[in-house]
Computed example of a mutant assay.
Amino acid sequence: MPVTVSSQYLRVNNIDIYYEEYASANSKETIVLLHGFLSSSFSFRKLGQLLSNHFHVISVDLPPFGKSGKSTKFHYSYKNIATTVLQLLQQLKIYEYYLVGHSMGGQIVLNMILQRPNQIKKAVLLSSSGYMKRLKTSYILLSYIPLFDKYIKHHLNKTGVLGNLHQVVYDKKMIDDVMINGYAEPFLDNRIFKSLCKMIRNREGDLSSEQLQTISTPCLLIWGEFDKIVPIKVGKRLVNDLQNAQLVIFKNIGHLVPEETPMRTYDEIKKFILPI
């Protein structure tokens, strides 16, 4: 039976944050879901339902994505986005929790651990971004050109949502109208393209090996065998840099792990967080 999902907004760190809360009478433990680049909480709609069997689930739209704010006054660094999620949870009076981050969301998870290690019990990284450097100065300078946001929109429209989905899933037959419309919806708001210009300037790059090696929080890494966006070699490097990590590889799965195989992902998370 589907669980009731409520849509919420909260003003945090001078920006509006949209999040979804899955009703659960079974647990006081909270698990927080953070999506990837160019995505939203929509990508967790299946996994969130499953996790709500055991957890109080909160799925956050990271600014400027999804239904969260797209202010060009916000600083879109990973560090500041992580701070914003931490402040959101503090305002919700949630002080201890588990984290799940997909792709870019994995980097936000790792940044949150660096800032508040004592609040995060365990973390799950799904095809997490890793070791990406800050963009070259030439690209950052281009983002200041007037109407550069129009170029970003044009560039993303060249492949379109369907083209992007073909890159991130292994089994193309699973792509349907629900997926296409769900991943397209956030980009109907043209403000996101100006915010992406700002993100080009603000994004500081992924955490270094030295920073990762200071993290002792237990981490489960889940990867798709055929991930074209963040290849398995990144997961293997991460599992070596993190002090307390394990890696699980799913066969015949691409980058969009929570969408492609929610049940297997749920089973691994449950086994990791709630061992028998």
Rank of each mutant, 00 (worst) to 15 (best):
137 T>F: 13
157 N>M: 08
139 Y>N: 09
275 P>T: 02
112 M>W: 10
71 S>M: 05
80 N>W: 06
215 I>K: 03
120 I>V: 11
217 T>S: 08
49 Q>V: 01
123 A>G: 10
47 L>C: 07
69 G>P: 00
26 N>G: 11
205 G>D: 04
201 R>Y: 02
132 M>A: 11
26 N>K: 12
7 S>M: 11
44 F>T: 08
205 G>L: 05
174 M>R: 12
10 L>V: 02
199 M>F: 10
201 R>N: 11
239 V>K: 04
40 S>L: 05
243 Q>K: 13
3 V>I: 15
258 P>Q: 10
25 A>P: 09
173 K>M: 05
137 T>E: 14
95 Y>A: 00
94 I>N: 04
232 I>H: 06
275 P>M: 10
74 F>Y: 15
174 M>T: 10
92 L>W: 11
68 S>E: 01
197 C>S: 12
226 F>R: 09
167 Q>M: 13
14 N>I: 05
142 L>P: 06
30 T>C: 15
221 L>F: 11
70 K>I: 03
123 A>N: 10
272 F>E: 05
194 K>S: 14
182 G>I: 02
37 F>N: 01
250 F>T: 08
61 D>K: 00
2 P>G: 07
226 F>W: 14
195 S>C: 11
169 V>F: 06
143 S>H: 02
209 S>T: 01
171 D>P: 01
88 L>K: 04
184 A>Y: 13
41 S>G: 15
70 K>Y: 12
119 Q>I: 07
174 M>N: 05
21 E>F: 06
103 S>N: 12
164 N>T: 11
260 E>I: 03
168 V>N: 03
21 E>I: 04
183 Y>S: 00
202 N>K: 01
169 V>M: 09
25 A>T: 13
116 R>V: 04
5 V>G: 14
66 G>N: 04
13 N>C: 09
219 C>F: 09
258 P>E: 09
124 V>W: 10
6 S>F: 13
251 K>E: 03
82 A>C: 04
17 I>R: 00
207 L>D: 04
139 Y>F: 15
50 L>G: 08
230 V>Y: 12
60 V>K: 14
120 I>K: 09
6 S>A: 13
139 Y>S: 10
77 S>L: 08
170 Y>F: 14
114 L>M: 11
261 T>P: 03
131 Y>F: 14
239 V>P: 08
87 Q>M: 05
254 G>E: 07
274 L>Q: 12
95 Y>H: 15
158 K>W: 01
205 G>Q: 00
161 V>A: 00
172 K>R: 05
93 K>F: 10
234 V>I: 15
189 D>W: 08
227 D>F: 11
198 K>A: 13
125 L>S: 07
1 M>C: 11
147 L>Q: 07
77 S>C: 01
199 M>E: 12
266 Y>A: 08
94 I>D: 06
78 Y>Q: 06
187 F>H: 06
213 Q>A: 14
106 G>I: 01
206 D>T: 05
139 Y>C: 02
220 L>T: 01
131 Y>Q: 03
8 Q>H: 15
84 T>R: 13
25 A>V: 04
85 V>R: 08
267 D>W: 08
239 V>A: 03
183 Y>D: 02
153 K>R: 00
186 P>L: 14
23 A>S: 14
206 D>N: 05
61 D>C: 04
202 N>H: 13
109 V>F: 09
80 N>G: 05
225 E>Q: 11
